[in-house]
């Protein structure tokens, strides 16, 4: 009896009825757009097409302002920075010499073993970042290249510093890229020095923010601070050998079966302005 009275009162109160109806419609919309990508794309494409030019201009203005603001304090450190860079150049030249030597040695050994000389290069598409996720939960960026440039979902996105993320959806002229720092991202990776495998995940709470977590490292993996982490190529999304970051901290899991590492990404996501999408691999000119 009481339930009937309550229902009657609820039905009389139009506001509640409308709210419940709206909530029901919202849940339906979530369900439909979540399960049917085609419907979401039909709504998404015209809106992004209209907004992307304005975003491109604003993004450029933002970067220009940031660049100018960044140069002011740099003036005071130019002399010291110059000295440090000279030292770095000298070191790099030495590395280059060593590398050339190794390359020659490698070619000789491969020909001795009868291996075909594998010299693959990535087929890259340059793109500009035109917008960034406004919220604090996820890390998604919008780039100004899309299906017209043959970009597809799941393609890896890089800069000259390292891995940025993967494309999660495309329109004709734009693509959404989920950064490796996003909570939902996970990439197969390995330590360059020891070849130990693991999974690099984005995390909201990995202190400090913006760092990554490398999980599933075996208990006996030899981890050292400063180790470089690269993509392992497993899973097929990201090609092998792309730098992800460097180990800054190692920790044992509470149950001590595994260990994990905190990774500092190689890419500075705050200064992400231009990226490259890996469309595939191609044979380089021999």
């Amino acid at each position: 009896m009481k339930v009937v009275v309550l229902l009657r009162r609820l039905l009389k109160n139009r506001r509640w009825l409308i709210l419940v109806l709206l909530l029901f419609i919202s849940i339906m919309i979530v369900n439909i757009t979540l399960n049917q990508e085609a419907i979401f794309k039909k709504i998404e494409i015209p809106i992004i097409t209209v907004l992307s030019p304005a975003q491109k201009i604003l993004s450029k203005i933002g970067f220009d302002i940031k660049d100018k603001l960044d140069t002011i304090p740099q003036i005071f450190y130019l002399k010291e920075e110059n000295e440090a860079l000279k030292k770095q150049v000298a070191e790099l030249l030495q590395y280059k010499q060593n590398l050339l030597e190794y390359q020659r040695e490698n070619t000789d050994l491969r020909s001795l073993l009868g291996f075909k000389d594998k010299n693959l290069q990535y087929d890259l598409e340059a793109a500009e970042v035109i917008a960034r996720d406004t919220g604090n939960w996820f890390n998604v960026i919008l780039i100004d290249k899309g299906e017209k440039q043959a970009l597809k979902k799941d393609m890896a996105v890089i800069t000259n510093e390292g891995l940025v993320g993967c494309i999660i959806s495309t329109t004709a002229n734009t693509s959404k890229v989920m950064l490796i720092t996003d909570e939902r991202s996970s990439i197969s990776a390995m330590l360059q020095r020891t070849r130990d495998n693991g999974i690099v995940k984005g995390s909201i709470d990995t202190a400090p923010r913006g760092y990554l977590k490398m999980d599933f490292l075996s208990q006996d993996a030899n981890l050292v601070k400063g180790d470089i982490v690269i993509s392992s190529g497993l899973g097929g999304l990201v090609p092998k050998g792309i730098v992800i970051g460097e180990v800054v901290e190692t920790k044992k899991e509470s149950y001590e079966l595994m260990q994990y590492a905190i990774i500092k990404p190689a890419v500075d996501f705050l200064k992400l302005e231009r990226v490259f999408v890996i469309k595939g691999e191609k044979e380089a000119n021999q």
Partner: peptide, 16 residues
Amino acid sequence: FLEDILFGRFIGLNTI
């Protein structure tokens, strides 16, 4: 709605 369209994978997360 605009945020869901620009950065999301479905409509509703930010909208609701």
